[in-house]
């Protein structure tokens, strides 16, 4: 081995340690968010009153998930500067130095194009166009525009995360009706209390990054009241959905129980002071956040069960 090769290996060794693995590129697609997209889109597709070939259905969900992942990569590209500041996001591939910003941009753009075209070819172009709009909304309207400019960022930006069941429905039917929009509204109204609870106990993160979350701009007391008001509106909508075409007795039971628990949690949060929360390390806020994950899963799960029972004459109100 020559001196030159020794020197070369010494120089390049640290760079190898930071080299991205396949998993780092996959992490750019925000797999946890993608799992929510997959589940809600699947419910939208299966709740639709038409049958879809299983393989086409599988492809539709896959391409919707890839589209969601692509928008996640574009979000990480744009938000790399604030991701480096926030504790919660420091470990992401770009702040960790594993992936370059340009790579995330390229991957996001390539997967966006691929997912839209493939969804259009696999199902219909209405669904493809809807997926394209969703990616645009999440990346441009939410990430680039609203997130850093208004405390309503989570409220309006939540729409992007609420579109997948509508895309799933359109992929199956090629048309639009009121039911997928009820599923949209459910996720849309659920997003603010979910994220505001997170913002309450991840207190310094958004402050440090300068993101105008409601906790930063209007204060923590106002955020607690916002959570209660949005939860009350959500509960009305969620229980009301039981009497639509996608509802039924199973959904109604789930909705009544879960919304009672959710309202109770929101009420407790609204009554607590900062001293109360700090005394028990935000126990109530943390459990409300965990409950919110179960809340959405069970509501969509109930819609799915109602849809799957319909062929046997059991689902819905008929």
């Amino acid at each position: 081995m020559s001196d030159a090769s020794i020197n070369a290996s010494q120089v390049t060794a640290p760079a190898h340690a930071d080299e991205a693995s396949f998993g780092d590129y996959f992490a750019l697609l925000k797999p946890r968010v993608m799992s929510l997209v997959v589940f809600t889109a699947l419910v939208g597709l299966l709740a639709a009153p038409v049958s879809v070939h299983p393989f086409v259905g599988f492809c539709a969900i896959l391409f919707i998930a890839i589209g969601g992942g692509a928008s996640g990569a574009l979000n990480m590209w744009w938000d790399a500067d604030i991701d480096r500041v926030m504790k919660r996001t420091k470990g992401r591939p770009i702040p960790a130095g594993k992936v370059q910003e340009g790579e995330a941009l390229s991957l996001g753009l390539a997967l966006s194009g691929l997912s839209v075209i493939m969804l259009g070819l696999a199902t219909n172009w209405f669904a493809g166009a809807f997926l394209a709009f969703t990616i645009f909304f999440y990346v441009v309207v939410y990430t680039m525009w609203l997130k850093r400019s208004t405390p309503q960022n989570i409220v309006i930006g939540g729409a992007a995360g609420a579109f997948p069941p509508v895309i799933g429905w359109v992929a199956a039917t090629g048309t639009m009706s009121i039911e997928p929009w009820l599923m949209f509204a459910l996720t849309f109204m659920w997003t603010p209390p979910h994220f505001w609870a997170l913002a309450l106990f991840m207190r310094s993160d958004y402050d440090d990054a300068g993101v105008p979350m409601l906790t930063v701009t209007h204060g923590r007391r106002a955020t607690r009241w916002h959570i209660l008001v949005y939860t009350a509106l959500l509960a009305t909508l969620a229980v009301g959905t039981a009497f639509s075409g996608i509802g039924g007795p199973i959904y109604l039971t789930v909705a009544v129980v879960m919304n009672a628990l959710f309202l109770r949690g929101a009420w407790q949060i609204s009554r607590r002071t900062e001293e109360d929360s700090e005394a028990d390390n935000f126990k109530v806020e943390r459990s409300f956040f965990k409950l919110s994950l179960l809340y959405l899963f069970l509501h969509f799960g109930a819609i799915l069960v109602e849809a799957l029972l319909k062929p046997y004459g059991l689902g819905g109100w008929s």
Partner: peptide, 23 residues
């Protein structure tokens, strides 16, 4: 060093071919 990354890309491309064929 890049075996796992290349394997991942290879398998992804193979899966894409299967999907196109199946569709």
């Amino acid at each position: 060093r890049r075996f796992s990354r290349n394997l991942g890309v290879g398998l992804t491309l193979a899966a894409f071919i299967v999907i196109i064929f199946g569709l």
